[in-house]
Each structure stands twice: as C-alpha cells, then as structure tokens.
C-alpha cells in the first residue's frame, strides 16, 4: 500500500484517471436526470392524439426528432407542436380532437412529410389510420341514449355505418319509442375525432381516447372456441356425448319426442 500523500509515480496517468472519474460522474448525473425526464415525458394525456401513422408511443419518442414538418404540411392546422403544459413531450406533434379534428386527407401529407418514419410511411390509406378510438364516455348525457334523435356523431363520421352505427333498443321510459344508440366499432374507427368535435353537448359525450387506453388486445390466454375452430377448420373437441334423457315416469317434455 502506498501513502496517498506520496508523489504519484505517474502524475499524468493519475490526472487522467481523476479526470475520467470526474467527467463520467458528471455525465452520469446528467444522464440520470435526462433518463428520469424521459420517463416522465412518456405520459401522454388522454386528450392528446398523435398524428396518423404515429408509431406506438414508446417507439414514437425514439423516432420523432420534433422537427414540426408534419405540422407544417397539415392543411387544416390540426396538428400542433406541444408546448409546456400541453401534455405531450415538449416539441412533439399532437392534436386535440375537440379543438380541431383530423380531416383524414386522402394523400396523408403529414405522414409523407415525416423525415424519420415516426409517422409510419407504410400507412397509405387513411382509413387504416388508428390515431385513437372513439368511446361514448358519457351514456348519461348522450342525447341519443336519452331517446332523442341527435345522431350528429354518427352523421359526421367519415367511416359512417362502419365505425359508428346506430343500434335500436326499446325505450322503456316511453314504452313506445326506440333508442338509437351510437355504437363505435373499434376495428373501423380511425380516431379522427370528428365525432368528438361535433358533439353538441358542452362536454362531449363521445371522446377519442388513445389506443393504449381504449382499444386493448384480448388476453392471449383466452382461447375462444369458435375462433379456434375456424382456425383449425374443424372442431377441436369431440361432439358432446349423447346422454339418455331421464325423466320421471309418464312425464314428457314440451316439444319432446312423442311416446
């Protein structure tokens, strides 16, 4: 063991090591702060929707350089870059459907403008976009669900009769009318937000929510027989065993075989 107060045998080496330690310490501190900030920036508020073709949020932040080219090429000023307190990571593009919804341009200029592919260039048909999914968030206030005929969300839907249908049910309040319930079919909903924008209520009763919140994948461990059967092309289990009908003497089932 050498006395630390002793003159170092190799002062340059010692200095280099000290420097390396100091710099890597500073760099590590800086890195930890960045990483923590980065984690926090992942929280995307429910009102903020990404442009069409946006990669899933965790991949999006690895790809988006926050250049704003998609915003510039959006002809309807739907897209904005997030400022402080807008919610999404600062400088990233988003839109709030209630303010300005996506007009679903056929040529999808925002995707074409993206230099990095944070907006996936393989999206060429806007109907395939999944910016979010509309959900009736307030059954209690939706006019159609009160038995009135508002129908606005249904009528403005660019994918009308596929993404939103009106399903009739009995109106038990009046006992003689129907309720025309707007029902969203997630497999066709692009999340453009036209329905949310045009909901006539002060607070929209239908809202577009991010896919991570509202359109979830079925748990992989559920095997739905009818689907598995279709996949296999045949029944996966034998037909139910025929059991003898056992009834008390002299009793017959209605519609049952006549004795």
């Amino acid at each position: 063991m050498s006395d630390p107060r002793e003159k170092p045998a190799n002062p340059q080496r010692r200095k280099a090591l000290q420097d390396a330690a100091r710099f890597s310490g500073a760099a590590a501190a800086c890195g930890v702060m960045l990483a923590a900030f980065g984690e926090q920036s992942r929280a995307l508020p429910a009102q903020a929707l990404r442009p069409p073709g946006a990669l899933p949020e965790k991949d999006f932040l690895s790809a988006c350089v926050r250049c704003g080219l998609c915003v510039r090429d959006c002809p309807y000023n739907t897209l904005r870059l997030a400022d402080w307190r807008d919610g999404p990571a600062i400088g990233t593009p988003f839109f709030a459907a209630r303010a300005v919804p996506c007009e679903m341009c056929d040529d999808i200029p925002c995707v074409k403008a993206c230099p990095t592919g944070a907006l996936d260039h393989s999206l060429t048909k806007i109907e395939k976009a999944r910016m979010g999914v509309a959900v009736i968030t307030s059954r209690e206030t939706c006019l159609n669900l009160q038995g009135l005929r508002c129908d606005v969300c249904y009528r403005v839907c660019p994918v009308i009769d596929k993404a939103i249908t009106l399903e009739t049910t009995h109106n038990s309040r009046t006992a003689r009318h129907a309720i025309f319930e707007p029902v969203v079919h997630a497999e066709h909903c692009t999340g453009c937000g036209k329905c949310e924008k045009s909901c006539v209520l002060t607070e929209a009763a239908i809202k577009v929510l991010p896919l991570e919140v509202a359109s979830l994948a079925q748990d992989a461990h559920y095997r739905r027989g009818w689907i598995e059967k279709g996949k296999a092309g045949e029944a996966l289990v034998d037909a139910p065993v025929k059991l003898p009908t056992r009834l008390p003497e002299g009793v017959t089932l209605p519609g049952g075989p006549k004795k």
Binding site: F23, A27, G31, A35, G38, S41, L61, S62, A89
Partner: peptide
C-alpha cells in the same frame, strides 16, 4: 461527456434523450 451520456441514455431509454 454530455454528448456521450445523451447517446447512452437514448440507447437505454429508447427516447431521443437530448431533445427532451
């Protein structure tokens, strides 16, 4: 070193780190 840290953090966290 800060530039290096930004690259390392980007690699670990999958976020373009310095742009934060």
């Amino acid at each position: 070193w800060i530039a290096g840290a930004a690259i390392v953090v980007s690699a670990i966290s999958g976020v373009v780190a310095w742009e934060l």
